[in-house]
């Protein structure tokens, strides 16, 4: 199992943070453009999924999978969006994202007095803690093929 990269958007679609670990291929467009496309795609999937759902979609869109990777999505009631790309074998990503929110985001972004809500995160402390968190997770291990 492995983790490729992570996007965090706020409720207005501003990219708050991007990080990558075992991502080996670039998309060929700029980081900003890629973020915009990603956010747009998620927005469309989300509204489509809830529209065609045969039941009341309490949780909404959670992930999609291709034959090479999976995209996992968690949105908080405050509109923060965590988007994690993993390989297709990754399990329990929802719990991982919930932990990331409470143990890393709240602790080192929300509680950082030098961060202003709504602005991209530049804290190195957050970067370090996030990196530790991801690397210590059961999901993270480099796969040799």
């Amino acid at each position: 199992m492995t983790i490729y990269h992570l996007y965090i958007f706020d409720k207005l679609g501003t990219m708050m943070y991007y990080a990558e670990w075992n991502r080996t291929k670039k998309s060929g467009v700029s980081r900003e453009e890629e973020a915009k496309l990603t956010y747009g795609m998620l927005f469309s999937i989300k509204s489509f999924v809830s529209k065609i759902s045969p039941h009341d979609p309490r949780e909404g869109f959670l992930f999609y999978k291709t034959n090479r990777y999976a995209l996992h999505y968690m949105e908080t009631p405050s509109g923060l969006k965590f988007v994690l790309y993993t390989d297709t074998a990754a399990l329990n990503v929802k719990e991982l994202l919930q932990q990331l929110y409470s143990k890393i985001w709240v602790e080192y972004v929300v509680r950082d007095p030098l961060w202003s809500p709504g602005t991209p995160v530049t804290s190195e402390l957050f970067q370090t803690k996030l990196d530790e968190f991801i690397k210590q997770s059961a999901l993270y291990s480099i796969r040799n093929i």
Binding site: T76, P77, S78, Q98, S102, W105, V106, V110, R111, P117
Partner: peptide, 15 residues
């Protein structure tokens, strides 16, 4: 604005 994030993370409350 900040406290809500702690509250949501702490309680896992849905919207």
């Amino acid at each position: 604005m900040r406290l809500i994030e702690d509250f949501l993370a702490r309680t896992s409350a849905p919207r």
